[in-house]
């Protein structure tokens, strides 16, 4: 286990190193300059600013400086908000993103599990059809459309929830709903397939032969066996949430990293883009590692073969 963990962490670090390197050199090829009003500045002023950001040094030196910074969690200084450290910027915006992202994930996965199992247990009935339609709709309607509709109808028209801004829990409801749609739909689809598969397996047949009733079969045998593989889609779902958060945070003015990422992209704030890329990558790596470990802990087939090694 320790060996496995060590290996995984090594690969994560390697991945982050490669990602930092690639982003660094991509940013060097970026067109445009960080200076929004270059025309108005004198060459000496420009030189002054370049020196301040370390842009006057050769590229390989800048790279080493950057790498050393990244190791210490220092991503440089934002172009957009001068004098603000990127790491501080990201840190201060992490909270809201984690809150709505986490809530969206939990709500989506839980509802998806219910919807998917209902569809499988009541396969080929109206319940199944409804569950399929809901998940197809939610997986198909783009998050930005859904978010605008939620904002308009539940926020502006019905006035149930604030349409934007960031405050207490009530402000998180609409963004959470918009983010939950994709994990809900994906989980429901995955769960249905998985459970239909499990329900047609030999050991369910044996459970029926034991005289176990329908509820007992689902509760004791089908649920657990179909729930375990769900862990494997948590990684891809996290990616969906990250993607969704970029527009959802924008639409609901949530001061999160998704909103920041889009803002930085539109203002060519390279240090922030690079920092956020590495942060996204690191978060995803950690999620993938955790889900892999969880999978091993929960599935006896993996857990026990790992022990004996």
């Amino acid at each position: 286990m320790v060996k496995y963990l060590g290996k995984r962490i090594f690969y994560i670090i390697l991945t982050l190193f490669i990602v930092s390197t690639i982003t660094f050199f991509l940013m060097k090829f970026m067109p445009g300059t960080p200076l929004t009003n270059q025309a108005k500045l004198t060459p000496s002023q420009i030189h002054q600013i370049y020196k301040q950001y370390g842009l006057d040094k050769p590229v390989w030196q800048q790279y080493l400086v950057y790498l050393a910074g990244v190791v210490h969690g220092n991503f440089g200084v934002s172009f957009q908000f001068s004098n603000q450290a990127v790491s501080y910027l990201i840190g201060s915006r992490m909270g809201p993103s984690l809150i709505i992202g986490g809530q969206g994930m939990i709500v989506g996965v839980l509802l998806g599990l219910v919807l998917g199992s209902l569809g499988a247990v009541k396969a080929n009935t109206w319940i199944d059809t409804t569950s399929t339609i809901v998940s197809i709709l939610l997986v198909s309607i783009p998050s930005f459309v859904l978010a605008v509709l939620l904002q308009y109808y539940l926020g502006l028209k019905l006035r149930w929830f604030p349409i934007a801004d960031w405050g207490g829990f009530i402000y998180t409801v609409l963004p959470t709903m918009a983010l939950a749609a994709s994990p809900l739909a994906e989980t429901a689809r995955f769960m249905r397939t998985e459970m239909v598969d499990v329900l047609s397996s030999d050991y369910i047949e044996l459970a029926k032969a034991k005289g176990l009733g329908k509820v007992g079969i689902i509760y004791h045998h089908a649920l657990r066996n179909s729930l375990i593989p769900i862990i494997t889609i948590i990684g891809p779902l996290t990616v969906n949430i990250m993607t969704g958060s970029m527009v959802v945070e924008n639409i609901f003015s949530v001061p999160g990293i998704g909103e920041q990422f889009v803002k930085s992209v539109l203002t060519n704030d390279y240090p922030t883009i690079m920092g956020l890329t590495i942060v996204y990558c690191a978060m995803l790596c950690v999620v993938l590692l955790i889900t892999d470990i969880l999978y091993g802990l929960i599935d006896p087939r993996i857990r026990l073969s790992g022990q004996s090694n």
Partner: peptide
């Protein structure tokens, strides 16, 4: 009793 003992037991119980 079923044909295939490899698949007729619940793997997680």
């Amino acid at each position: 009793i079923f044909q295939d003992p490899m698949t007729s037991l619940d793997p997680t119980m």
